[in-house]
């Protein structure tokens, strides 16, 4: 097997990440329903978490806990970062959803087409 093909196959994780990233962003752009948009946003953010976690894994490495008989450890650093990023993501998503609830109470719809055409451009 040539080097290029080997390289292509072993970096399959990045293709998955890019696919998830683009699908998330596509949902945000294409959907008019506010909840669906937030779902797309969450997918977009989550794919970035995997982008961080992925290079931290070392082939043959164990969990980063000191123990006899193990010399290769995976990097714990990305996990720590992503723990923070997950918290940030949850905060954003919950604030977004609560805004959607308030919008639904005030306007009785959460379809962007109806809302933005009627409300923001009426002057």
């Amino acid at each position: 097997m040539s080097f290029e093909i080997y390289h292509f196959i072993t970096s399959y994780n990045y293709y998955i990440i890019i696919f998830l990233m683009i699908s998330g962003l596509f949902i945000v752009v294409s959907k008019g329903n506010m909840v669906k948009k937030l779902v797309g946003l969450a997918l977009f953010q989550t794919s970035v978490y995997i982008l961080y976690i992925s290079p931290g894994k070392i082939v043959g490495g164990t969990a980063p806990i000191l123990a006899d008989g193990y010399t290769i450890y995976s990097s714990p650093f990305p996990h720590v970062l992503i723990l923070t990023a997950i918290v940030v993501g949850i905060a954003t998503l919950s604030l977004g959803l609560s805004l959607v609830i308030r919008i639904n109470e005030e306007f009785e719809t959460i379809e962007e087409d109806e809302l933005f055409n009627n409300e923001l451009n009426d002057e």
Partner: peptide
Amino acid sequence: DRRGLLAAYQYLIVGTIGATLYVIGVG
């Protein structure tokens, strides 16, 4: 003004995309 809710939602979507793009760059 109730339109403030729409403005906040609009900014939330755009702002989060911006911050996430920044994180991709940092990654």
